[in-house]
Design a protein around this nucleic acid. Sequence first.
DNA 1: GTCTATACTGAGATAGAC
DNA 2: GTCTATCTCAGTATAGAC
Lengths: 240, 240
Amino acid sequence: MFNTQIARKHSSETRSQILDAALALCRERGLEAATMRDIAKHAGVALGAAYYYFPSKEAIVQVYYDAVGDEHSLRVQAAFQSANLDLEARLRAVFHLKLEILHGDRRLLSALFRYTGEPEHPLSVFGPATRSNRQKSIALFRLALAGEKLPEDLAGGLPILLWALHMLLLLYFLYDDSPEQSRTHRLADSGISLFVRMLTLARLPLLKPFRGGLFALLRDAGLFSEPTSPAYVVPQEEPS
Amino acid sequence: MFNTQIARKHSSETRSQILDAALALCRERGLEAATMRDIAKHAGVALGAAYYYFPSKEAIVQVYYDAVGDEHSLRVQAAFQSANLDLEARLRAVFHLKLEILHGDRRLLSALFRYTGEPEHPLSVFGPATRSNRQKSIALFRLALAGEKLPEDLAGGLPILLWALHMLLLLYFLYDDSPEQSRTHRLADSGISLFVRMLTLARLPLLKPFRGGLFALLRDAGLFSEPTSPAYVVPQEEPS
DNA sequence: GTCTATACTGAGATAGAC
DNA sequence: GTCTATCTCAGTATAGAC
């Protein structure tokens, strides 16, 4: 599998030319329709060069997936540092920044969703091969919740639950034909608002049976048990 | 697109030989790995014959999708007629019968999920082209809820919500490596139990703000508004 | 190590003979 | 209705220029 560390060995700009051409073509016409030959042609290189840098079309999607995650981490951290936000505002930042990054990339996102039903595939967003992408994303939700006083099970589980809901939102985003996907943004806001209210409600003893039932269900589903390296919080930028 | 009505024009058994071979191969090795050439060979016909009956490989998946839906409708109706079940038992029947039908077909199901992120694709389970499959499935959940006294918005929305949850369960099913996917079955039971309890809770006036918020959210998401032909209840078997 | 040119393979899909 | 031959094109392989 391609990974970004190898990139440094290649001195020229050829790689990014190919990547740019690939992403542009995929944005325009989707992954299927963007052939490696077209990509190479648009990048001004031979077919072999494209395959030299990206062993397959999927490798390009992988790089895109990683890049989106990194960009999201950077922007969320910047937002959290630049202002003292409350829980709702932090969650809104996480969701809307993601949507902003993906704005215009719905066809690329479609390409990624394609492997969702194939657990063994290296690009399955729920599969073992993308665990580190997932962990980085979950860490952002954990960061958003960091200020809250929560019982341990919730503190461990809610970030994963939020991540899962955010994946559902991205699916909604793909189907959202409103201008600029404004419906998706509104849905995110309503959902976050409801989530925050429920979090308050969940502390009421009256709702214990409900809360217990729901979270037992999520725990059974494994939603609360994605293994995490305890020390991991947020991806660090390597000094170049 | 292929549809089952055309089938009658083809007199021979060739079609079902091809279909059987195709489904067997796809169950065994997945859609990608099952080539049309292999399918034709296993069915004992030439490549051209396979394409004569199924204009594309996707057409085979389409036929499978339709067949699963029809089989599910038949079994659910049979279960509901053979005994007087309460709500929880009816919902269990709908969920477990679906899982039984799909048992052993996880690779085929994977193939179907592949198009979930492509709204325009004829096989997208959320797309306009599969609306009738969806309506048939939603009708079964409506049937399961039929005995309950519900406010109008819930009566309209809950079947769609249950259908959406059932799709999530199928995704879980694909990732469930427990023997015979027993975890999925248990999760279905817990989820149904919780759903029924929540339905009771939702009637308490105390929870009005919560219920209002959640259902407003789902309505905004469009989950409650999939257009339905009012007269439609359950697919009828055409007398042959 | 970086890249070009070109030919090969395998698979979906089609045309036309019978 | 069925077969054989063929087309197209993604992806691969390779040989070699620099």
